[in-house]
Nucleic acid binder design. Sequence first.
DNA 1: CGGTTTTGACCAGCGC
DNA 2: GCGCTGGTCAAAACCG
Length: 484
Amino acid sequence: MDVKIKQLQGSEGAKKEEDGHGSVACEEGRTEDDLESARAKMGEVREENERLKMMLQKIETEYRSLKMKFFDIIHPEAKKQNDNDSAPTRDKCEEPELLSLRLGTSSPSGHKKDEKASNSGKSKDQKLNETKGEDAGETWPPSKTSKTMTSPDDNEVSPQSQVKRARVSVRARCDTPTMNDGCQWRKYGQKIAKANPCPRAYYRCTVAPSCPVRKQVQRCAEDMSILITTYEGIHNHLLPISATAMASTTAAAASMLLSGSSTSQQTPNSSATPTSSANPHGLNFNLSDNILGGRQYYSLNSCTALLPTITLDLTNTPSSSLSSTQFNMLTSNFSSTLRFPSTSLSFSSTENNIVPTIWGAGQVNNGALPCIKSLNFGRQIQNPYYQTFLEKSNQASQQVFAETLTKAITSDPSFQPVIATALSPMGGNSSAASQGLAQNGGENSLIHNMKWAENTVPVSSYPMTLNGKACTPTYLDKSSTSNP
DNA sequence: CGGTTTTGACCAGCGC
DNA sequence: GCGCTGGTCAAAACCG
């Protein structure tokens, strides 16, 4: 991790020059007007950076405060005994708890045997994770393995086991039988599900023989053009570039689901009244009841209802109760009909010029899978190339995203715990963010700090294709980088 | 020939 | 205990 941080710091230093702070020499040959214009822009950028810096500091302060409160709730006895303990001590104890929510790791405990050899090289937090048996990789219900072996985790429906079994359902308009999400899948079964004439197909990942990831593909009974793909599990292998987009997106979505669930759990009534907060960018983050969770396809699938499921609605059909120009994040409540909460993220916007810019670096994102670039918590790919690529090609979009997200966070207090939880696995701890902030002088601090996830993948490389045919060809940048 | 798909059978969980 | 349903297995068929 230290190495990664150093790499980031190094890239940030290089980026400063790209930002224009060290590029005065490049101004040679330009007119005085150009110089004045460039200086004015530099001033604006500096001001914006200062604002972002302040926002980040505020977020970190609130994050630490929330962490302390959370720790007090979880360990009230520890609070009594350690009333005089400093915050760093608490952080040490709490970090594994928060890390247990991480879904984007690529080292599932289901393959601990294989990992024992390399265990010595693992970071501290990873080891703590394994010690507590909360590794997020073991997500698939061990239906078959339970025949021969049962783990203690499987016998209790603890919050941790719910975490492990989180599902991410993706609704997208597709004409072909299945979405090509970049992974290799092998079909191992097909069933006619109740109340849906369309058969449900079962696939498992064949990129690695021991990969636990599986997916179910079924057409929506209400709209045959909508393909519902449900992912479950975490890849335990390196992924192709094109596959990391989906993997990170589902991981991020699942992470949102889990963090949102925990929030609702602690304050079950807090979401009774939908709250929304518009921001100057016109991007609304709505925290409300489980509006989409009550959709029919949830209740029809009893088994899905047994698992915490998050739905990424990538269809162009605006939700009946939601504006088509909103990025609606709907946290779950605890419906009496569902044993676990379901969360829906609706990306149904087709007209909004903000969201596509965020997801796709300006490319129109009309139904293509949005890549939550700056909220990737997984680390499937650790390739410096992606960092460089992103910094050069997606810098503008990330700035927009950072600004938008920051304003959304600051304007909507209910979103802060979600981000706080989401940020906790990134880069190990929040103090690293502070360090990075201090060491790089705060320039573009928020943007950079939110780029810790090494598997960030440019959307332009994500082939939302269907068996080789572009699912939504107009959204793809054909000049994008090719897979290695 | 090896990998994938198809498809009937089997199993487990759940409700009655 | 029985039936229903979802999920998985595995042999056969299929395909490049």
